[in-house]
Computed example of a mutant assay.
Amino acid sequence: MKKHGILNRDLAGIFAKLGHTDQITISDCGLPIPDGVTCIDLSYILGKPSFDEILAIVLDDLVVEKAYVAAEMKTANAKMHYVVNKSIEQISEVSHEEFKAMTRQSKVIIRTGEASPYANIILQAGVIF
């Protein structure tokens, strides 16, 4: 049994298979999941687990070189915008419509119970060297 890091066997397996520039998405409970993209639904009640809780855990386990968020997050969800900018150096903002289209390329979408607007992020895997 694993002692540290992500214990969820599905997430741990997907993370182990990621290569440089592969992308994953962490979403709120309302983001549409594109057909054909694996979704691991961690939500158990409205608001739990939270977006920022899952983001912190994933960032502790995964090398991230870049992230993408919807530009609308800045004004519609200042709290999450602050959390994201505090946690990740290189962030690109795209329209929410473009963001949703980009999720089609994600290796996995991790659905949280987050119930605040635009609490979604695409993380691009980096390398450890």
Results as ranks from 00 to 15, higher is better:
residue 89 E to A: 10
residue 63 V to Q: 03
residue 49 P to M: 02
residue 94 V to T: 01
residue 117 P to L: 07
residue 93 E to S: 12
residue 53 E to L: 11
residue 32 P to I: 04
residue 36 G to M: 03
residue 46 L to A: 11
residue 109 I to Q: 05
residue 85 N to A: 08
residue 89 E to P: 03
residue 36 G to E: 02
residue 69 V to H: 01
residue 66 K to W: 06
residue 76 A to F: 10
residue 46 L to Y: 10
residue 40 I to L: 04
residue 82 Y to A: 14
residue 20 H to A: 13
residue 106 S to Y: 07
residue 24 I to A: 10
residue 68 Y to K: 09
residue 124 Q to R: 12
residue 35 D to S: 13
residue 97 E to Y: 03
residue 47 G to I: 00
residue 86 K to P: 04
residue 6 I to L: 04
residue 29 C to M: 13
residue 101 A to R: 14
residue 34 P to A: 02
residue 124 Q to N: 07
residue 5 G to D: 05
residue 99 F to Y: 13
residue 52 D to A: 07
residue 27 S to T: 00
residue 47 G to R: 01
residue 24 I to Q: 07
residue 39 C to G: 06
residue 122 I to D: 05
residue 85 N to D: 11
residue 53 E to Y: 12
residue 122 I to S: 05
residue 101 A to W: 08
residue 42 L to R: 03
residue 88 I to N: 09
residue 25 T to N: 08
residue 95 S to E: 00
residue 70 A to V: 03
residue 44 Y to L: 01
residue 41 D to R: 00
residue 125 A to N: 12
residue 121 I to P: 12
residue 129 F to W: 13
residue 5 G to P: 04
residue 103 T to A: 07
residue 108 V to Y: 03
residue 22 D to V: 08
residue 68 Y to I: 15
residue 58 V to M: 07
residue 21 T to L: 12
residue 49 P to Q: 02
residue 90 Q to N: 15
residue 15 F to P: 06
residue 71 A to F: 06
residue 35 D to M: 09
residue 4 H to Q: 13
residue 101 A to K: 14
residue 80 M to T: 15
residue 2 K to F: 05
residue 55 L to M: 05
residue 45 I to V: 14
residue 95 S to P: 00
residue 25 T to A: 13
residue 36 G to D: 02
residue 123 L to C: 08
residue 37 V to H: 11
residue 24 I to V: 10
residue 13 G to S: 15
residue 64 V to S: 09
residue 111 R to M: 00
residue 38 T to R: 15
residue 71 A to P: 03
residue 117 P to W: 08
residue 110 I to P: 01
residue 111 R to K: 01
residue 14 I to M: 12
residue 18 L to T: 03
residue 23 Q to S: 11
residue 51 F to Y: 02
residue 16 A to G: 14
residue 57 I to V: 09
residue 129 F to N: 15
residue 59 L to R: 02
residue 7 L to D: 13
residue 88 I to E: 09
residue 89 E to Y: 09
residue 90 Q to I: 12
residue 99 F to H: 08
residue 69 V to F: 02
